[in-house]
């Protein structure tokens, strides 16, 4: 435990309040995450965990009339600061969404997209990076012969791994995953979980999940959200065996939510 505090936090939220118009969606959240760890955000639907996740790459900006107070820090920089270039920030923070959302382009172009929009022109570099990302996301063997085919021809699980490869291609340091396996079958889910486990070595991963077992399997730390508040955050093992709050215990054991 002591060692953990020595580590400099990679991502940190301090007193974050977020409002959708009049609705107070996040209430004073303070949470920090070290490099190369997986943090799972759990809680019942509508508790604000996805909203919190989207604070880290400022995706909430897209929703009109949102207001945020407090600090969200990535690598020690306040990302809501005016000097922050939001496109640069998002390059550094990859995101995988709940439902697979490949672009209506070929498999290759899907992965290359992030590079292309960031001004990479060198064809050889792009090719190498696409191959590496697809290998990282364990999709290469399945798609290497049909890179020119439309991404829509892949199965749901493959599409989701493609979306992960797409996020990895621009080498972010943080990976945000919003229920990445909720729309997938058990086999694809297992593959994604395996993948998360491997990616941990290079990335800081924040994952939102509804699946308690999944949170238990993949994460180092777990944070439990309820009604826009962070109830409890601890090592996953502690959390699942010995939660401090009864509400957390009730949720984890399936008594509500």
């Amino acid at each position: 435990m002591v060692k953990d505090y020595v580590k400099k936090p990679k991502v940190m939220a301090k007193d974050v309040n977020l409002y959708y118009g009049d609705f107070h969606a996040l209430k004073g959240i303070t949470l920090s995450m070290e490099e190369n760890t997986v943090v799972a955000l759990i809680g019942p639907s509508g508790c604000g965990k996805s909203t919190f996740l989207r604070c880290f790459n400022r995706m909430n900006d897209l929703i009109p009339s949102t207001r945020i107070t407090g600090y969200v820090m990535v690598d020690g920089k306040d990302i809501n600061d005016r000097s922050m270039n939001v496109d640069e920030l998002r390059k550094n923070i990859g995101m995988v969404f709940q439902k697979p959302n490949p672009f209506p382009k070929s498999i290759f172009e899907n992965v290359a997209y992030g590079l292309r929009v960031n001004g990479v022109k060198e064809a050889k570099f792009i090719e190498e990076r696409v191959e590496r990302s697809l290998k990282q996301s364990a999709l290469w063997e399945e798609v290497k012969d049909k890179l020119k085919k439309s991404a829509f021809e892949l199965s749901g699980g493959q599409q989701q791994r493609l979306c992960i490869a797409r996020a990895l291609a621009i080498e972010p340091s943080v990976l945000l995953m919003d229920e990445p396996a909720s729309a997938l079958d058990p086999i694809s889910t297992a593959k994604i979980e395996e993948l998360i486990y491997e990616l941990k070595n290079q990335y800081t991963i924040i994952i939102v999940t509804h699946n308690m077992q999944q949170a238990g399997r993949v994460s180092d730390k777990t944070a439990f959200f309820y009604m826009g508040e962070l109830i409890e955050c601890d090592d996953t093992k502690t959390m699942f065996t010995n939660p401090k709050h009864t509400r957390t215990q009730n949720y984890i054991t399936g008594r509500f939510g």
Binding site: M59, L62, D87, R90, K91, F103
Partner: peptide
């Protein structure tokens, strides 16, 4: 989701 995916990759 399509727009968000693009923006999340750092596209303007």
């Amino acid at each position: 989701a399509m727009k968000e995916a693009s923006l999340a990759l750092g596209a303007t």
